[in-house]
Design a protein around this nucleic acid. Structure first.
Lengths: 219, 219
DNA sequence: GATACTAATGACACCCGGTGCCGTTAGGAA
DNA sequence: TTCCTAACGGCACCGGGTGTCATTAGTATC
């Protein structure tokens, strides 16, 4: 969950130059969220504080809810690629563990910032609800990999349930992390996955493959 | 997921009589949602159609998003009680399976109605997001039972992850159900739980009990 | 340096969900 | 009838989000 990348790296081409960046806006907004609370911070306030118009705010972020998320889609693409590049002889859960850990790696300098963002995302009801849509995309990526690996449609029960379980492991791990100021996120997640792994044997799942007519559902 | 119960059964006591019921309002609204789509249906339209004031609508439902949910909290209380009443000698997953199935039982006459509601809840992004808050309560009930049963804080990794997994099984099952007009929901969920059960052995989990310092997180 | 082109900006009006407030209405009880 | 009470409905208001459009600030061209 690294922050959104190089806004500035893009070459100045044509037309009026943008008056701010995603990163700047995001930092300003997050600061206000921390000071006054998420719901109590209005978009007008964020815009004023950032020195832009309210209308402009919505050209940087589709909604106030999206601010704490950064460029999630790009990260997700990264995880998809990472999963696809996993050697075939690795057990499924091991592939998932490695890729998901990688997905959650964040530069040392941004750990505290990350902690504050996740605190918001997991504890503010509005954001908790909104996050569901992101989680759905994330689960989709996991389910597709599991499906591919097991030769099942990604809409089938096993891939879907494994995706939910992985999400649960991550979020439970995040909660532990947020509750312990000294904890290391990746260590926690790693431990969590190893603990769960022992209970979700890939072999057993594969034994079941084909034993049921595979109904497919939309992912 | 039986619908909200007897609005009318309450004795008329004092003051002006209510001009409608949760059930009536709910049916009117659901019909409009089906006809025009959820987002395209405004609260004003629902109120007008139901013959009440817009302001009154919000006295029956805290938000438009809550309409398709009915009286979820009451159902949840039922599940909590059902779980608590389970014989101790039953394996954990068996207790969960039974209670969750019971939670999802719906009278034959309401099956089609239930299907339409779930179609909305699972496929309309706005509702999908909002539902997260309900799912959180549901997971809480599951996690508390698992925690009690395993002698772990409900915030610990195992109860939390099991709750997520159960939720995943249910929602994956619902997706299968929605994708197959002839399917029977309870049969599907039953099959799903039995399939997953074999992979989440309670004994193995119990073997791990206490092997880690139990960090607790808020549920 | 003037001009043309382009892209971001900001102001405005508007829609919708949701809330606080308050006077009104419709029932039972005295 | 009168009193009490709970539900009702209208109104004003807030905040998030969108469509529209004139304006601004850059680059490229002459």
């Amino acid at each position: 969950m690294v922050l959104q990348g190089d806004d500035a790296a893009a070459r100045p081409r044509l037309g009026r130059a943008p008056s701010t960046t995603h990163a700047d806006l995001s930092h300003t907004a997050l600061r206000l969220f921390m000071e006054r609370g998420f719901d109590a911070t209005t978009v007008d306030e964020i815009a004023r504080e950032a020195g832009i118009g309210r209308r402009t705010f919505f050209r940087y972020f589709p909604s106030k809810n999206d601010v704490p998320w950064g460029d999630f889609d790009r990260l997700l693409d990264g995880m998809r690629d990472h999963l696809a590049s996993m050697p075939d002889d690795l057990p499924l859960m091991e592939q998932l563990r490695r890729s998901i850990l990688e997905f959650n790696r964040v530069p040392e300098s941004e750990v505290e910032y990350h902690r504050r963002r996740m605190e918001l995302l997991l504890h503010v009801p509005t954001l908790l609800a909104h996050s569901t849509l992101r989680y759905a995309s994330w689960r989709q990526v996991v389910a597709e990999h599991v499906g591919r690996r097991l030769g099942l449609p990604h809409g089938d029960l096993i891939p879907q349930t494994m995706a939910w379980t992985c999400l649960g492991v991550c979020l439970a791990g995040y909660e532990q992390w947020l509750g312990d100021a000294d904890a290391d996120l990746l260590e926690l997640l790693d431990e969590a996955f190893r603990l769960i792994d022992e209970r979700i044997g890939t072999e057993a799942i594969q034994a079941h493959r084909g034993s049921h007519a595979s109904r497919s559902a939309r992912g």
